[in-house]
């Protein structure tokens, strides 16, 4: 395969997003060639500076001779299905770089299969020869966590002064982090955010490090970070992405995590990741099939019954499923 042009790649990505069978056919051909790129998920609360950090990491990676693709995922409006995708504003100096490909994506709602299309787009960018693929998502919901989980290395970005976001991170995203970054570290409260993250890490990981041990060097890595079950020590790093401060340590940590994966831990992770990916694809297919087979009138009637509190939502879902099974009993297996 010759390297696809950016135009070809861009159109393939559109096809993947739209579930175009032709795109999936191409992707199947490309799948065997993928597996060389390092897929890095970057997730965190709105306002934590993810896009700026990704842009800074990209500039640095470019200066180290790597080619970089960025997939930036933002939520679709639940009301209109539309979206404003503005992450490029923070990446303007990368637009014309031949070795950089940037794609903005809307998540297209819970039924949009965002995790599936993101995984496929990562395969396309990988097969197209990009060394490093960043998948940037707002770490706000389950869908975003799923997106991040298709990556090999996951960077969770936090910033001081975002209020309860630490709680959100504790609740879910922290567990998927391989690298933690406190961005906007020049802001008040950075130390507090660092120690909150460290404390949360110590709670959620088996071998507790020496939490809260901060030296005078403001942008130094916290010593003795906690290690996750597989022996990777999750670094907590400070950055000021707008100035590029601390970005080198993050890119180094990303590279170190890849080495760690290559030294054996990666095989198990890859197996887990693919098992997860197959499972979410199966879930998407089942849901899609169900939604196609369910009678709209019946569906609405059950929702109405829930609204009137005559029916518990669980029983409504069960009723829909039962109707599907009866349908399946009547039709012979293909």
């Amino acid at each position: 395969m010759s390297r696809p042009s950016k135009r070809e790649l861009a159109r393939l990505i559109t096809g993947i997003e739209n579930g175009d069978p032709n795109a999936l056919r191409t992707l199947r051909e490309w799948y065997g060639r993928a597996g060389r790129a390092h897929i890095v998920g970057v997730t965190g609360a709105p306002g934590s500076g993810k896009s700026t950090l990704v842009a800074a990491l990209t500039r640095l990676a470019r200066s180290r001779g790597q080619t970089v693709a960025i997939v930036s995922v933002d939520p679709s409006s639940p009301f209109t299905g539309g979206a404003i995708l503005g992450d490029r504003i923070r990446m303007r100096e990368l637009f014309e770089d031949e070795g950089v490909f940037i794609r903005s994506m809307a998540n297209r709602g819970a039924l949009g299969g965002i995790a599936r299309s993101t995984a496929d787009i990562a395969v396309a960018l990988d097969a197209a020869g990009y060394d490093l693929v960043f998948i940037e998502t707002v770490g706000a919901g389950q869908a975003e966590v799923e997106v991040a989980r298709v990556a090999e290395t996951i960077v969770v970005v936090e910033a001081p002064g975002l209020g309860d976001d630490i709680q959100a991170i504790k609740a879910g995203i922290l567990e998927i982090a391989d690298i933690l970054v406190v961005n906007k570290a020049d802001r008040e409260g950075a130390e507090r955010t660092m120690s909150a993250l460290q404390a949360a890490l110590d709670l959620s990981t088996p071998s507790a490090g020496t939490a809260g041990h901060h030296g005078p060097g403001a942008l130094r890595r916290v010593e003795a970070p906690a290690a996750n079950a597989a022996g990777w020590r999750i670094p907590v790093l400070k950055t000021i992405a707008t100035e590029g401060t601390g970005v080198e340590a993050v890119l180094d940590a990303i590279a170190r995590h890849r080495q760690y994966l290559d030294q054996g831990a990666g095989a198990q992770r890859r197996a887990q990741r693919l098992e997860y990916e197959v499972t979410i694809r199966l879930r998407d297919l089942l849901l899609k099939r169900a939604m196609q087979q369910i009678e709209p009138a019946r569906y609405r009637a059950l929702i109405e019954a829930c609204i009137a509190r005559e029916l518990h939502p669980q029983d409504a879902a069960q009723a829909l499923l039962n109707a599907l099974s009866r349908e399946a009993d009547r039709t012979p297996v293909e």
């Binding site: 679709s76 209109t80 299905g81 539309g82 504003i89």
Partner: peptide, 12 residues
């Protein structure tokens, strides 16, 4: 355009 259901890439 977003309110009309389109995906808008805004570059600043």
């Amino acid at each position: 355009l977003r309110d009309a259901g389109m995906e808008v890439i805004y570059t600043g």
